[in-house]
Design a protein around this nucleic acid. Structure first.
Lengths: 254, 254
DNA sequence: ACTGAATATGTATTAAATACATAAAGCTTA
DNA sequence: TAAGCTTTATGTATTTAATACATATTCAGT
């Protein structure tokens, strides 16, 4: 089977098994090289980038579908995943244009409805734990800096903007930022993460004070050796205390 | 045409003109008698209550559809309306059960998909400006106290809970509460609104100080006469300043 | 004019956010 | 092996915001 035949078979399958006219788009955030990244994919046989997404099985909740899609693409099971907005503009894409850009055989590739409503989820993942797995629709996965995105397919630039805005609000509300770091991290790493997401510098003394006052991270005896300079202490996120604090509504961060 | 015929015709029309498997549910909040109310409807020929909702035309954005549905039902054009969550559980209702409860002719009333994903919007309206307009599907509209809701159809109790939670968070973030009051209101009225939504008492001196410090309401010379006691001053919401403050991100309220 | 029930308001206290500077560590290289 | 460079770690004073709290005023009704 060549690509075109595969495509046709794939969409036939999707149209049979999935809800029509409804999709999921995932904004997967990672943090690396002091920059906030989004995991994007390049469509087969094209130079077009877009968000990983997928469809919802007829017998599957939307949340479960989002989890499934993420797992398929990142290999990660446990992650911070949250619905943030549903995109229901009348015109979110031009079917013919998409077909052309993606080198799809013709408009009849599938029973595409004229429009698709898409439910947006964003995920916060530990960059290092992700092994993006391309499927036959995808040539390549790449982490791109959120500040330097090319024009993406569909309304994906807009979706990422909304996700980012939501992330910023949430960050000032609860310390979701942990999810972007490895299990053990240093205080400066955490600070740079916050600085990156909030897009402003923070004072190291005040930051450290505040984070530690939240009582949901613990400092380990261990230090990170091998850096060129003074060895920083490692910290670990205390999930138990975090959950407890969340339930009691004590968490807010500005 | 009797009701059953009307129903069949109606759903035939919906199925032809609207997106299948996707709906909108509106949680319309109002404030009256020192209580937060939700506008609910009683379905024709039944004792079952539920949220007003509707479907999205094939050529209509979801936001516009929500506005349209609200306007149809409340007569209000300008209102605070916001998408808050999309409900995509696999099982949100039992088609047979609903048909039975609503005395619909049989399961073939329409080409109902086995499931419907619903996009939730909530609206904040000035109770007094609303004239609920029943359509042929509806026997009655009624404002019910959010704290004393009967079991509703579908997952509507759940939807209201999520809306309420969102409203509380938003209230502590920006003073959306104005939208629930008439153009001119007194400080104690505003305070009781906040107390009701946040479900806790507030100190009148601190409350007044804080609200006035936000700089988005103005005290009028006018006082409300005729009450049995000391006449309270009237205040008015300054939309211009509010917008400006929002843009500059100055607004937060806890 | 007296009563009752709500309105209006100021100050002191506490807690949180902010501003700010220096010493210590660890690798590099001279 | 000492000096240098860069990063980490940390405390205190100041400002701002949140909280706690009590009394005089108004006006309809009697």
């Amino acid at each position: 089977m060549d690509y075109k035949e595969q495509l046709i078979a794939f969409f036939k399958d999707v149209d049979a098994r999935c809800i029509l006219g409804l999709s999921i788009d995932c904004v997967i955030f990672g943090f690396y090289d002091n920059q906030l990244k989004v995991l994007l994919l390049r469509w087969k046989q094209s130079d077009e980038w877009g968000l990983p997404g997928g469809f919802i099985y007829k017998k599957e909740s939307v949340d479960v579908a989002a989890q499934r899609i993420l797992e398929e693409r990142t290999g990660i099971k446990e992650l911070f995943l949250q619905q943030f907005h549903t995109f229901g503009e009348e015109v979110r894409y031009n079917r013919a244009e998409i077909s052309r850009k993606l080198n799809w055989p013709d408009n009849s590739t599938r029973l595409w409805p004229d429009r698709t409503v898409s439910i947006g989820y964003f995920a916060l993942v530990d960059f290092m734990k992700v092994t993006p797995t391309a499927d036959f629709l995808t040539d390549e996965y790449r982490w791109l800096d959120v500040e330097k995105l090319p024009p993406l397919l569909f309304d994906h630039n807009h979706i990422i903007e909304v996700a980012l805005k939501t992330l910023r609000v949430q960050l000032s509300w609860q310390p979701v930022g942990y999810n972007l770091l490895p299990e053990k991290f240093t205080m400066p790493e955490l600070q740079r993460l916050y600085e990156t997401i909030l897009n402003r510098p923070l004072d190291p003394r005040n930051f450290s004070k505040k984070m530690r006052a939240l009582g949901i991270i613990e400092r380990l005896e261990e230090q990170r050796k091998g850096g060129a300079f003074k060895s920083p202490y490692l910290f670990r996120f205390d999930k138990e205390k975090y959950k407890k604090a969340l339930q009691e509504g004590h968490l807010s961060f500005s």
